[in-house]
Design a protein around this nucleic acid. Sequence first.
DNA 1: GACGCTATTGTAAGCGCTTACATTTGATTC
DNA 2: GAATCAAATGTAAGCGCTTACAATAGCGTC
Lengths: 339, 339
Amino acid sequence: MSTTRTVPTLDDVARKAGVSTATVSRCLNTPERVVERTRTRVMRAVEELGYTPNFGARVMAAKRTFTIGAIIPTMENAIFARGLQAFQEELHARGYTLLVSSTSYKPEIEAEQVRALVARGADGLLLIGYARNPDIYDYLGQRAIPALLAWAFLPGAEPACIGFDNRRSMQALANKVISMGHRDIAVISGIVEGNDRAEGRRQGIMDAILENGLDPAKIPIVETPYDIENGALAFDQLMEGETRPTVVMCGNDVLAAGAMRRARELGFSIPEDISITGFDDIELARILTPTLTTVHVPHREMGRRAAAELVRMVEQQSNGLSEQLESSLVLRESLKDLN
Amino acid sequence: MSTTRTVPTLDDVARKAGVSTATVSRCLNTPERVVERTRTRVMRAVEELGYTPNFGARVMAAKRTFTIGAIIPTMENAIFARGLQAFQEELHARGYTLLVSSTSYKPEIEAEQVRALVARGADGLLLIGYARNPDIYDYLGQRAIPALLAWAFLPGAEPACIGFDNRRSMQALANKVISMGHRDIAVISGIVEGNDRAEGRRQGIMDAILENGLDPAKIPIVETPYDIENGALAFDQLMEGETRPTVVMCGNDVLAAGAMRRARELGFSIPEDISITGFDDIELARILTPTLTTVHVPHREMGRRAAAELVRMVEQQSNGLSEQLESSLVLRESLKDLN
DNA sequence: GACGCTATTGTAAGCGCTTACATTTGATTC
DNA sequence: GAATCAAATGTAAGCGCTTACAATAGCGTC
């Protein structure tokens, strides 16, 4: 296609500066090991030739790519988009670049994605939650690729995780709901299979149910993928039950938004006729009418810390330090106090 | 699983399968050039050893990374998150991996990001909009790295772009607004500097104003970063003007959500007292109360096509083909017909 | 000036893979 | 069964860089 667009190599620079390739390499990587006079001469040659090190060669020789991979369910969920954005910014600030892959909530394809990112030379990996095939950890361990989990927290777990306790957080919300006099609770849960966060949240509700002496068998639960439309459909399903719940607790804000929409379409007024709660506290929660009671999660903070910790693990070849972040209840209009 | 820290190489696989390294390489890269019997034997060895090709070596030998870089303003805006998700999925389906970097709407740091991604070996680059320092194109041209623009469309532009005409789309919406009897129009625009999409949208409104014989000088415009909170503040600002607008046209749905919230807080009922419009048609638009009149943009489709085209450019070393996608008006409750 | 030491620079061996080219295999034809 | 030719496989030369080790230069001492 184009003509002889010869990209200059280390050799060219060395020749032009009248030194060996080793000296040029040292000028670029460990300048303090080269005497000033030589260095300026080399740097001028680099400048004049417009030399940029060849990525592949450098990676092969140095065995580092300064690249970190992240595998998330999807960027379309605002919580991951937000966290990933912060993760990327922090990575960038530390001289790393982000490789992204997504599973679309299909845990079975995660192993392949891990391999793909490792094959692309990721120096470290960010994974979501801890529920996955243990082979993945073997694979990473064998290659000495550090991995860090986020959006979940399990003390003492391997590998390290940076996140919050989904179960406890949801339990706190459910306790609050119950303390407000709600006894007929219905649940719209995300798909639990292969998703420990969704599972934890559901269990958290059950924990509170039991703790308060209510009958867990009487709690209707609909399980559906995180999606507004599914939230609406799930609400329909719940309304078919014999006893009408006074509150619908949803696995995340997105489901809650769908449920809320459908509730209004069916003529319910919220929270007078029925209360609705979410989880995550994405922007949507403050925009909905009525505003949504939910659990606030510091997604950005999580992304930022995860980046910092992962870089540390890569550079010091150390094991990760788990870190628990605090979530908090955000009481807004969609939850009515029955007392 | 073994716990040995030795990462298997092509050589190991070759030895185990009793073939040459060339044959193993061919099994991985051009399987059709290897007879079935040999291939299965090799693949079994690959499997058993848990072999993954060394990235650096592969890049150096093949001069390809199978990696595509994308530089977007931010993943926190749902339109980019959504488009990028589709972009990544399509890339993945074609055997490529996505490198992500973001500018946080600071155009001046884009050049640095381009260099960083190129230095990481990106085979091609996705950029947003066409407003940027031309040096960037020189740099990419010199290194023969194909680039494609998205979220904007400018016929005949270089490099190629895949997107829609922001100006025309907004003009269509504005015309509709005017045809519904609105004469007092106020505008909340995104920051125009270095953002051709925001600029196009603002111009589109002006086009319609002029086209309909209204006085452009009488249109109050507030320019503010895309953010719910800023939408609310901008609304406040507009309400300080002497004549109250009958409609507030916003540069995107996020600003509209903010404006709508503030309007309600101030006691306006929408659309009876004041109409509000957005742009993008993100999920939020259907969830807001009232639902938001906006311009639907096929973000996923755009991401998908951009990936396909960019891969084509990389693999065929060809220039990109621009492609215009259609946007469409979505009339919902937030816009009142005054006729 | 010879000696010993350190700071600087050079030499060259890989790193693990792809691929041009060489060789072998095997099917087909006469 | 030999000849022919295409398909399959093997051989080995790099790709451009880093770095261990070797060589040299520079400097202070005696």
